[in-house]
């Protein structure tokens, strides 16, 4: 445990800055890869080739798109509320970026090893809400406002089942610290929480169904919290044009875009940390394990879930607002509460 930056250059302000910058350095190439993945996976699923012109097989397409966005004219509508309009993308991005503070990349690197990691992720999600409302309202566009309202209602509603999932894991792990949660699951693959957690014996098999349900509940809520299909209602392009970022262009649009991709990674990483052992190797502690492999496993597993999100996007239609609320409040929330109680009970008798 610990932080390799501190080990290298000591606990000083430079180290702190370096630690802050590392996730940012991670997000930029990650976003490019994710955009490329979105394009190419979409193309592959739809029987077409996708972008092919920039670079070998079009791999430089995301770079070209970022350059395009940088060069684009930055338009602010005249009737928009300028200060808030300009501030909103930054707040949204801060919300997404702040979550990286507690996401471990390896057993030797976590930007901030506070004991309240899960709680922190839960809390900074609210920044995005404020930013989205700000952007939607300041655009002075009815579509933006509708999108913002939908988005906020959606994010807040789905925070509840997600919170119940966090609580269940916290109950069984006895901590909110990400690193400890992962350490609990280290060892062979059946120590992961989706396979019942580290405890042995017959009781493990009682845990498994509840963890699987919780896993699915969190997978669904994470899609809703990041506004991805089938819950991309806030930006449903066929209904409300582009939702809260209808009026944004250029760099500010890129900020929203990047925040969305960063959020995709955050929720995927949380799924991996909570259920799939984080940076621990599926082959136990003996094979392909260690701090460097940890990065590989952590990012690789998270990328799988990013892939799942992209996969779903190109497969499923979109839900309607009331159906979304129904699913959140009447299906996922009771389900997660029931699972939480069952797990708490099982943990007590264990």
């Amino acid at each position: 445990m610990g932080n390799f930056v501190f080990d290298l250059i000591g606990k000083n302000i430079v180290a702190a800055l370096v630690i802050c910058i590392i996730p940012l350095v991670f997000i930029l190439p990650y976003a490019l890869i994710a955009i490329l993945g979105e394009l190419k996976i979409g193309a592959w699923m739809q029987d077409r080739v996708g972008p092919m012109r920039t670079g070998w097989k079009g791999v430089l397409q995301p770079v070209a798109e970022v350059v395009k966005l940088l060069q684009k004219e930055d338009i602010t509508p005249t009737i928009a509320n300028k200060p808030l309009f300009n501030l909103a993308p930054f707040i949204v991005f801060i919300g997404a970026f702040a979550a990286f503070a507690v996401l471990p990349f390896s057993e030797k690197f976590i930007p901030s090893g506070i004991n309240l990691g899960l709680f922190f992720v839960f809390a900074v999600g609210s920044f995005a809400v404020i930013g989205i409302v700000m952007g939607g309202w300041a655009s002075n566009n009815k579509y933006s406002l509708l999108g913002a309202m939908r988005s906020v209602a959606q994010i807040i509603s789905y925070e509840l089942p997600a919170g119940m999932v966090f609580l269940s894991i916290a109950t069984i792990a006895g901590t909110l610290d990400m690193q400890t949660i992962i350490l609990n699951q280290s060892g062979p693959i059946w120590n992961w929480y989706i396979f019942g957690g580290p405890q042995g014996g017959a009781i493990k098999f009682l845990f498994i169904p509840f963890f699987v349900i919780l896993f699915i509940v969190y997978l669904i809520s994470s899609l809703a919290e990041t506004n991805r299909t089938p819950f991309d209602i806030p930006e449903g392009e066929s209904e409300i044009v582009a939702g809260y970022h209808t009026e944004y262009s250029g760099m500010k649009f890129a900020m929203f875009f990047m925040a969305e991709y960063a959020n995709m990674y955050v929720v995927s990483a949380i799924i991996v940390i909570l259920f799939l052992g984080g940076w621990s190797s599926p082959f136990g502690t003996s094979f392909m394990d260690g701090p460097i492999w940890g990065i590989f496993w952590m990012v690789g597993k998270a990328f799988f879930f990013v892939f799942v999100q992209i996969w779903l996007r190109w497969t499923l239609p979109r839900l309607r607002v009331d159906q979304l609320m129904y699913l959140g409040w009447k299906v996922l929330l009771p389900l997660s509460i029931a699972c939480f109680m069952a797990i708490a009970f099982l943990a007590m008798i264990n």
Partner: peptide, 13 residues
């Protein structure tokens, strides 16, 4: 119609 509902892939098929 599928695209209006958010399903993009059948459109291309």
């Amino acid at each position: 119609f599928g695209m209006d509902a958010g399903a993009f892939t059948p459109f291309l098929y």
